[in-house]
Design a protein around this nucleic acid. Structure first.
Lengths: 257, 257
DNA sequence: CGATTCGTTGACATGCTTCAAACTTCGTGG
DNA sequence: CCACGAAGTTTGAAGCATGTCAACGAATCG
């Protein structure tokens, strides 16, 4: 970027994007007018309101300034599959259908402030490499979820989620050791492919093992090392028939407890 | 696009991208020289060769002209998680790490010809909206895999994969009713989060039910309706505790057999 | 203050993984 | 060209993790 320190910034600095290297709008477009337009396209939404719904025209993506959002899609059977939880600084809404229709929905989990990035502003004069970088970030998240769903058991999935949330809160300057979940057990289950009962039971068991303390939505991580170990654990102890088995170690709750 | 019919095309037309609306290079950049460069950056790789590996610099993405590729990542335990299978016309390699390092690897499943799209050519003068569209396509694939892994049982997963492959072959002008799998049972298991034995058993059972005929890597779909029904089926019969249960129907193998 | 949603706990059923072994195909070298 | 070994595929039996069903307690909301 070519912004010098002595220049008067025409765009208000927004520290929520700091972890990614500063305001995303500035990263993507150089045109000041468009930067200004982007910055002005803010939104505040109350808990439970949709940012967009499946089937709507996908003409923008978003960055969270404060609050949190979940994205999800609905199966043919009417079931909900949560695709991700987004925190301040996160980008979401990049996915769209072939015909520019939203393939997923996004809803706020609490009162939330958003930056809106209309595609129209990005039709030209965009840094494609930076745009790819943003998209790649999202894909990596998705891939991580795939890995969790395909290879980890209930303990590993819950531990992974908590570990991930803790790391993200920490990276944003909040405490990674104690935080409040903005999503329900239902949401967690729908995200991790587990029944609500399993989520509840697993959290209780973690607490009994002294790994964390949980009271409704409040979570306090007591033994982060154990949590990380569980998060890295695979579903079973494949040795012979596993996919390209390596020499990795294993972490069972019993071992960590 | 502003290419007129009477103009002499400087870039060789490549029908493999037709299903997406013509050559991807032309869609993304207008500069003829860069289009020409893109077209010249072809590659042919033999079976089992890597296109890129985790940790390498992510400076390009690819389109398959012929053959097939699987992308995968390796867990901390040394296990492999297949993220996707790519056929002619498919784009892959858009995902990258925070620091532009590959977060996944890609390897050919057979002799394969590729188009290479270096990010450097896309640094400027790119149609951002079109680029987002390409990335969104990939994300939708990922989301579909998440849904399969989180919500479907073994039958549903295998059926979904076969149904998907059939549809993709059909869309490319090949037969969707009979094709040869370019991936092993192992790969399928690593993709769908199932043990190899489960993959094998499920295929056998599908055959016994008259849904398909399978001999090693050769697959012939006999009852596509039944397969689709199974593919759309959810893992269980959640009624009360399921995530936002709807009125969708169910399809068990028993019902379709 | 009652109704509804959310979270927890228990008992039971089952689908998948794991372990074990045989068979087939393919590649390699004698 | 055949023999041999390695890898891929199939089949069987048993154990266990997770889903399902059911019921209760707690918090939230109007």
């Amino acid at each position: 970027m070519q912004t010098k320190a002595h220049e008067v910034p025409t765009v208000h600095p927004c520290h929520v994007c700091d972890s990614r290297g500063g305001c995303l709008g500035r990263q993507l477009v150089e045109n000041r007018d468009i930067q200004q337009k982007l910055f002005q396209a803010k939104r505040i939404q109350h808990k439970g309101e949709h940012v967009f719904r499946e089937g709507e025209t996908a003409d923008a993506f978003y960055v969270i300034r404060s609050g949190s959002v979940k994205s999800y899609l609905v199966t043919e059977d009417g079931e909900e599959q949560v695709l991700g939880f987004y925190l301040p600084g996160d980008v979401f809404g990049l996915d769209g259908g072939d015909d520019d229709q939203r393939a997923s929905s996004a809803v706020t989990l609490e009162t939330t402030s958003l930056c809106r990035f209309p595609h129209a502003y990005l039709a030209d004069g965009v840094d494609g490499a930076n745009l790819i970088r943003v998209a790649a970030e999202q894909m990596q998240r998705d891939h991580n979820l795939v890995l969790i769903l395909a290879r980890k058991d209930a303990d590993g999935r819950i531990a992974s989620l908590l570990d991930d949330l803790a790391a993200r809160y920490r990276a944003r300057g909040y405490s990674g050791a104690a935080f409040v979940l903005s999503m329900s057990r239902q949401d967690i289950g729908c995200y991790l492919g587990l029944a609500v009962e399993t989520v509840s039971r697993t959290l209780t068991r973690f607490q009994e093992c002294g790994i964390l303390r949980v009271n409704r939505r409040e979570v306090e991580i007591l033994d982060h090392a154990a949590l990380s170990k569980l998060a890295g654990a695979r579903a079973g102890a494949r040795t012979a028939s596993g996919c390209a088995a390596g020499g990795g170690g294993e972490a069972t709750l019993a071992a960590a407890c």
